[in-house]
Design a protein around this nucleic acid. Structure first.
Lengths: 214, 214
DNA sequence: TAGATTGTTAATCGATTAACAATC
DNA sequence: TAGATTGTTAATCGATTAACAATC
């Protein structure tokens, strides 16, 4: 199996995002130098990263934008629409549910769940909030592959467990806790308060920047 | 100036989060081994990281939780309440505005702005949406230090520019674009669709996990 | 004292950068 | 052909891990 270093893999979606912008602007070719400049990285790194999965550049010419976009989409998994379930219909969950950026990038939230009985049956746009008792059945019936957790910290681990049990293998976690999941299940975590704390540390310490300034 | 490696700085808020949980549970002492296990890292790394800013551990005993929480708060900048302005009162902006996790961690959103005239004057909880024309004045008048950008991609750079001009030195950016800012300004970026793409890549490639599983 | 765990040094590992031959 | 830019190798840099003396 093709092995891609973690930091490289984390940059792939950013390359794709930039390349899609070039494509939309009608740019046909881009050099590693230009792409690197746009992303705040070096030409050498761009070439090294892109070389992980083939020879798409043309020496003396650059990278054909359209073809590279296509290849990157395939590599990243954007060649297929992912089916997503969201658990937690609080403020954040409802906003995520309505967020158009997900569908644009091929992630469709097909079902929303909450354990609060007063929320069940209510609507978020066209979607109806369902009870957790229907979770496993819905995941299987709707062929859902990814889960988003937007519940309070204390409930997140239990929700993750239910997701795994229902067959979900990828989880995006917004709850401020570290989740424990079995091997073979991938968790991406976004803790909004942690991001702000990285900012505040960076300002206090006077360090230039921190992790991904994207 | 004390220099902290970037990956270490990115872990500080996670240490603090875990230590606050220990504190809430009434745990007085914790070893690097225990803390590492909780965070999915090694005891050696915990010791090395914490040693960046002093000698808080007691050899043969462990780390005093309460004292370490206090120190970490000071280091990270959680000893002071940060004053935040949010621009963009769409779905995401409204959810962020209502998100209680920010205030709990010492980040207070004092003002919300939007350029859409139909939104101005409306309320998000107790906050009134203000026009961008008042931005600079409000930032100065309210002593705002941090900005959150929750506007569409095409408007984000212009908003960042206004923030910098108004004196803001730390920006949390939710728009899916890379922002260009002058030296001395820190940007943290959260692109929700990028996170999902890292998940989908990880699933497709069969790689164990990706960036921070927190 | 004996047992445990820290802080730190040295060794390993991995990622980034620089350089350049190969290629268009 | 001359100029440009890739893909790749080697050199550098930085982060993680392992080991252990110092300390409680």
């Amino acid at each position: 199996m093709l092995v891609v270093p973690k930091p490289v893999a984390a940059r792939f979606p950013l390359y794709l995002r930039q390349l899609e912008e070039y494509e939309a602007d009608g740019v046909a070719l881009v050099s590693s130098r230009e792409l690197g400049a746009k992303l705040g990285t070096s030409a050498a790194q761009v070439r090294k990263d892109l070389a992980c999965f083939g020879h798409f550049g043309l020496p003396g010419v650059g990278y054909p934008v359209k073809e590279l976009v296509e290849q990157l989409k395939r590599i990243i998994g954007r060649d297929h629409r992912w089916r997503v379930a969201l658990v937690g219909a609080g403020n954040l969950g409802r906003a995520l549910c309505r967020y158009k950026g997900f569908l644009e990038k091929g992630f469709e939230i097909l079902a929303v769940f909450d354990k609060d009985r007063s929320k069940i049956g209510k609507h978020i746009g066209p979607k109806t909030i369902r009870p957790m008792s229907e979770f496993a059945r819905t995941v299987r019936g709707e062929h859902i592959e990814l889960g988003v957790i937007a519940v309070p910290a204390r409930e997140a681990q239990a929700v993750a467990k239910q997701m795994v049990k229902a067959g979900i293998r990828g989880i995006l976690n917004f709850a401020p806790v570290r989740l424990t999941v079995p091997e073979g299940v991938t968790v991406c975590a976004v803790d909004l308060a942690v991001e702000l704390q990285q900012l505040s540390f960076s300002l206090k310490s006077g360090e230039p920047a921190l992790p991904a300034a994207n």
